[in-house]
Amino acid sequence: MNNSQLYKGSLSTVLLKLLKENGRMYGYEMTQKVKELTANEVVLNEGALYPALHKLEAEGLLTAEVVPVGNRMRKYYAITPKGQTETESRLAELEEFVKHMQLLLGAKLSLG
């Protein structure tokens, strides 16, 4: 994601939602999915992605599995049951935030 503080504050929620909807994914796959979903408007860089994934894993919200693919190893991430619950909580919180911003700014924002 770019340097916007709004994106940085939402990164872990975005990752959890991606994994909840898509199942097991590896890092590069996540970056491509974010680009696809945002029509290349949001670029998730590795410097932000991997620390966020490691933090979510340490919190017990994700699991990681290293799998051989061809002649190299690929690390796949998957959401845990605790991560599923946390995702729902974070999405509800984000929805409330957007509602409040709509009221404060008079903007037409939508989570889609």
Results as ranks from 00 to 15, higher is better:
Thr87Gln: 11
Lys33Val: 06
Glu96Thr: 00
Glu86Trp: 02
Leu49Glu: 10
Leu111Cys: 11
Gln5Gly: 13
Gly106Cys: 11
Glu88Cys: 10
Leu19Cys: 08
Lys8Asn: 09
Ile79Leu: 15
Leu104Val: 05
Ser110Thr: 04
Lys55Phe: 02
Glu29Met: 12
Gly27Ser: 10
Lys75Ser: 10
Arg74Ile: 09
Ile79Thr: 01
Glu93Asn: 07
Phe97His: 13
Thr85Asp: 11
Ala92Ser: 12
Leu19Met: 11
Lys35Tyr: 00
Tyr28Glu: 15
Phe97Pro: 05
Met30Gln: 07
Val42Pro: 00
Glu95Asn: 07
Ala52His: 03
Gly70Ile: 07
Glu46Arg: 11
Arg24Glu: 12
Asn71Gly: 10
Glu36Tyr: 03
Leu61Ile: 02
Phe97Gln: 13
Val66Leu: 15
Gln5Ile: 09
Thr38Asn: 06
Tyr50Asp: 15
Glu46Phe: 08
Ala52Asp: 12
Val69Tyr: 04
Gly106Glu: 13
Val14Met: 14
Pro81Ser: 14
Val43Trp: 01
Glu88Phe: 00
Pro81Trp: 07
Ser10Glu: 15
Arg74Tyr: 01
Leu16Arg: 05
Val67Ile: 07
Glu57Arg: 10
Leu111His: 00
Met30Cys: 04
Lys99Trp: 04
Ser10Tyr: 05
Asn3Phe: 06
Gln84Val: 03
Ala64Cys: 08
Leu91Glu: 03
Gln32Asn: 10
Tyr26Ser: 15
Glu41Phe: 09
Lys8Met: 11
Glu41Met: 13
Asn2Ile: 14
Thr38Arg: 07
